[in-house]
């Protein structure tokens, strides 16, 4: 199992090593030590690797991930798993702003809290947050699912398109065009499926409430000008 110590190896060397791994590589288990809040750790990985990052990371950890299973044993800075395509990213601690931003696929699991703008412009990613999420989360969220065990901050789902938001706790306020919607069987199944994939338990799909777009901003109407 390759171990890369960022105290002695440069970020460039690390990412270059990870980028050299193709789909059929035998080196599938990776351990990264001493990230100490560094940015862009394990970005652009494009192979089914299991990568354990032992400690807190900075901006954009696992950015644009494809196929890899990346676990951060610590907290993550802004833009964790931004624009992820596929695979799974787990952050054992908290994440900063923009977690899962513009993500197009795969699963992001945050075992702590997420700060503001979690799932901003998400485009197909599934995000599970065990704690709370901050303000402006799921802003302009296009598709995908955001499942939150705790509470949501202000302006949840502002200008949302077709993403589905499931929150178990309270929602401080909803953003423009975001409304609570009925939790139907298909949604219970969906949440159940995401929870199973996340590996988190102790909650039931029926504990969640669903929020999504009222689609009033889909075509311009001057009488909605307050929302713009």
């Amino acid at each position: 199992m390759p171990t890369v110590d960022l105290a002695t190896t440069s970020l460039r060397e690390l990412n270059e090593l990870l980028h050299k791994q193709g789909a059929g590589t035998n080196e599938t288990q990776w351990e990264i030590l001493n990230p100490k809040g560094r940015h862009a750790v394990a970005v652009g990985v494009d192979a089914p690797l299991n990568i354990d990052i032992k400690g807190p990371v900075g901006y954009y950890v696992a950015g644009m991930n494809k196929h890899a299973n990346i676990v951060v044993h610590g907290s993550a800075g802004p833009g964790a798993a931004e624009n992820m395509m596929s695979g799974k990213v787990v952050v054992k601690g908290d994440v900063s702003q923009y977690a899962g931003a513009t993500g197009r696929g795969g699963l992001l699991v945050v075992e702590g809290n997420a700060s503001s703008r979690c799932g901003i412009s998400m485009k197909g990613i599934d995000i599970v947050v065990k704690g709370n999420i901050g303000h402006m989360s799921a802003f302009m969220a296009q598709t995908g699912n955001l499942v939150v065990f705790g509470d949501a901050g202000d302006a949840l789902g502002d200008s949302i398109y077709e993403a589905r938001l499931f929150v178990r706790g309270s929602v401080k306020s909803l953003g423009a065009d975001c409304v609570e919607k009925e939790m139907r069987d298909e949604h219970l199944d969906l949440v159940d499926n995401i929870l199973q994939r996340s590996g988190l338990n102790g909650v039931k799909p029926k504990d969640f409430r669903r929020y999504g777009s009222s689609r009033k901003l889909y075509n311009f109407n001057i009488d909605n000008a307050d929302a713009y």
Partner: peptide, 22 residues
């Protein structure tokens, strides 16, 4: 969506360079 201002942009550019191996 995931950065604001030149100090953050500097970090974003590094991410893009890392993804595309500089």
């Amino acid at each position: 969506p995931d950065w604001t201002g030149p100090d953050d942009l500097e970090i974003k550019i590094i991410e893009l360079r890392e993804i595309t191996d500089w």
